[in-house]
């Protein structure tokens, strides 16, 4: 998550562009795995989700992955079908080096991400990297073909 530029009041067009912005993944060593921006949609609870998502991002930047996990879980209680939040859980699990769960959360996010052509490849990328970390290179290659 690139939180230094995060701003919930950005113009709508810019949010649209952000929807397609994919930040290259720096996944080697202890580099923090980062996410793209959470897209803005017209929802009643947008303010609450934005707030929790932003705080979770800051926690990730500080390397406080457990704290980020708790914040995203809170957001999921409010919006359980938000595929971006499930994707964030996958990223957090990756950073916690729980790669098996990272794969699973990526799959869960994809199961809810129908029609979101920005998020789906990000999930596959995450799953691929997690499989690599698990040493399951065949599965990683199989996943690579999907995006």
């Amino acid at each position: 998550m690139n939180h230094s530029t995060y701003n919930s009041h950005l113009p709508l067009l810019q949010h649209f562009f952000f929807l397609f912005a994919i930040i290259s993944l720096g996944l080697q060593g202890c580099t923090v795995y980062k996410d793209t921006h959470y897209p803005q949609t017209e929802r009643n609870n947008q303010g609450a989700i934005d707030h929790l998502y932003k705080e979770a991002g800051q926690a990730i930047d500080r390397g406080k992955f457990n704290q980020a996990e708790i914040l995203i879980e809170r957001a999921l209680r409010i919006e359980p079908d938000n595929a971006h939040l499930w994707h964030s859980m996958g990223i957090i699990k990756f950073n916690q080096q729980n790669y098996a769960q990272s794969v699973q959360f990526g799959l869960k996010s994809n199961s809810l991400a129908a029609g979101d052509h920005s998020l789906t490849p990000k999930n596959w990328k995450l799953i691929e990297k997690a499989y690599e970390k698990l040493g399951q290179f065949d599965k990683a290659r199989e996943v690579h073909e999907k995006y």
Binding site: A21, S24, H117
Partner: peptide, 24 residues
């Protein structure tokens, strides 16, 4: 069926690539 991302028709795909390049 609704195509997966890697099977999107070429013009759409190239449009997305262009957008992406704006932010890379």
């Amino acid at each position: 069926p609704r195509p997966p991302y890697n099977q999107l028709k070429k013009p759409i795909k190239s449009f997305l690539e262009k957008l992406r390049s704006l932010f890379n």
